[in-house]
Design a protein around this nucleic acid. Structure first.
Lengths: 197, 197, 197, 197
DNA sequence: GACTAACCGAGACGGTACGTCCCGTCTTAAG
DNA sequence: CTTAAGACGGGACGTACCGTCTCGGTTAGTC
């Protein structure tokens, strides 16, 4: 059915090349609609109309709105939350949690929730989403912990994956729950659980 | 739009009373379709057809497929995972995590994911879902911890909500991620973090 | 697949009855578009839009634009060409040919051509079209001839079907050919071939 | 828009010459698809794909599928029905009608119907089609009649065009109607109407 | 025992989005 | 300058559901 699209630059056989302008217009239109009306009311139809693009073009390069949102979102999100490096694990984690909470309160929250919903409903998409999430967000947490181990702040046998699960599990749980904030205090409680070396 | 339906028993003026048979047929049909084709392909149309019920009846009692699934699911799920009580917090938590993992591997997993997706996309539904989840699942964890505090196994000022967040955050994160199992080992790692009194 | 729709009045089971207003609006919209842009540019999409009607409604009751046009056309065409009765076969036929030619020069021509094209391409539709054509137009010619036989103007063993074929064959051939007119002179040449009693 | 293409041989400037191989492949592919799926499902897209030809090439040489079919058909149809010459008008006509009926029962029928439909819907194409039809089929009938006049079998003032209209009008009418056969008996009835000299 | 009122099933209604197909045009590299 | 390839914007197709509506019919309490 759908398979890993070529990276836009690579592919070059005969035939008219893919239009960079359309590509960009689609991702821009997607973000606009997302911000205006949210993930649920986002529609391939609306994206195409807003981007001034044939509907087929969307199907040619992505496969669903989730794939488009994932790409539109990953373009902007990488730089949004800078990886902290204060020299102390605990304050790194606290700061990361706080920054994440701030960003998610703005436009990113609803978008992440949309992607999360899609991942919950579609195992194939979950794999793509998780892969990206892993490299863009989880890697940050694991770096913080790894640096701390090197510094001797944490025991060398610390289970990085487990701690990343805890960090993002809590974060996403609170994001979906919308009851308790994702803030500095939450980060502090988590950081206090970290073992001594 | 839609507002809290009366509890079926209460309301009684003139007019034909609501049909308990239809009510049940709807919930049964919902579970059947959920198991056969999953949450995404579940449709009010299909539920009504399968249950032999007018489509209007669904709108009279519930407001969306999410509400129906929530009720259909809550009917069966309460008894599914018995609250453990071994006399030791840590083994209680481990056992609960293990049992939860087992249940979620069967039919419950996809259904919980469906409800989670809905909660992610719809704040109003999230409130309903969380309320139920709170009373049916979170309460179990908090009871385990509360009992342990009474026993002197845990410090009396332990933040129950925080620990519940950690437990279910990790659990749901792994459920959506579908990468790492929800098993005894995960419960053990979590239990080890509990503070001494 | 598609089968003879009920006559709008007859059918009455449970469920909301068919909307007469929509039915009429559809046929009206169809005639309007036909006159404005012709058969080729007529589209189920446009009919629905113009009639202010859901697209599904068209599929529910007809099956294709050809079926709709056939009904829209048959509503208006029956009375358009009055059956002549001058007391003489030859002048009856001449007059009928002349009147037919006149009508086909106006809106009817393109519509008949559209239906003819559809009949040429679709055997199933051809049967429907021919049935209607038989009862509305061929019957007129055969009546004229039958009356003449009764009057003793024509031999009693005259092959009515063959003469009807000749009449309409010539007529439609000239309609499609658009080279030679369908006029009084054509009718006269045809009438002259009729055998003496 | 589209205008009379040069005759393939004539034109010759600088640049790569047109490919005769492509030209033939297109016409062959067209006939194949016509036979397999009929005129309605014939598509420029499919022709190009089957012929292994760029889609643009079709537009360069012809303007529509009707034009392609017309050429593909005219290549093969000229020789299909030999002009009869028995020495007697009536048997000539009967034989021609019979042969035509036989050919139209095979592959030619649906194709002629397709072209007829196109002619009905598109006046510009009708002119092209009629011109070819005139020279390839009508000419045969008019020759038969002209020879008979020369022989003294028919009156010298016979209206050839009128009789050709009658012949092909009846033939095409029965072809579209699909109710009565195009056979020897039909030819005989027609021949009997011919006037004595 | 008639009346009223809310329910029931069925199913048509106007809409919206889907995913597919084809159109006619364009833009490449290759010949 | 043509060719095959193939992407582009556009538009119609036929299908699936949505939430609403309108029927005839049912089933209780109330008069």
């Amino acid at each position: 059915m759908w398979m890993e699209e070529p990276a836009l630059a690579e592919r070059q056989g005969p035939g008219r090349p893919r239009s960079q302008a359309s590509h960009d217009a689609i991702l821009d239109a997607t973000m606009e609609i997302l911000i205006e009306t949210g993930y649920r009311d986002l529609t391939l139809q609306k994206i195409a109309a807003r981007a001034g693009v044939g509907r087929q073009t969307l199907y040619r390069w992505w496969g669903s709105k989730a794939d488009i949102v994932l790409e539109a979102f990953s373009r902007r999100t990488a730089q949004e939350i800078p990886a902290p490096d204060t020299g102390r694990v605990r304050s790194d984690l606290v700061q990361l949690m706080e920054e994440s909470g701030k960003v998610l309160k703005k436009v990113s929250g609803p978008i992440v929730l949309g992607l999360l919903a899609e991942a919950a409903l579609d195992e194939a998409f979950a794999a793509k989403f998780w892969k990206l999430f892993q490299s863009q967000r989880r890697a940050v947490v694991k770096n913080i912990l790894a640096r701390a181990i090197k510094r001797g702040e944490l025991p060398p046998n610390l289970d990085l994956e487990f701690w990343a699960d805890l960090f993002f599990g809590g974060l996403l749980y609170r994001l979906v729950g919308r009851q308790t904030p994702i803030d500095r205090s939450f980060g502090e409680k988590l950081a206090k659980l970290l073992p001594r070396p």
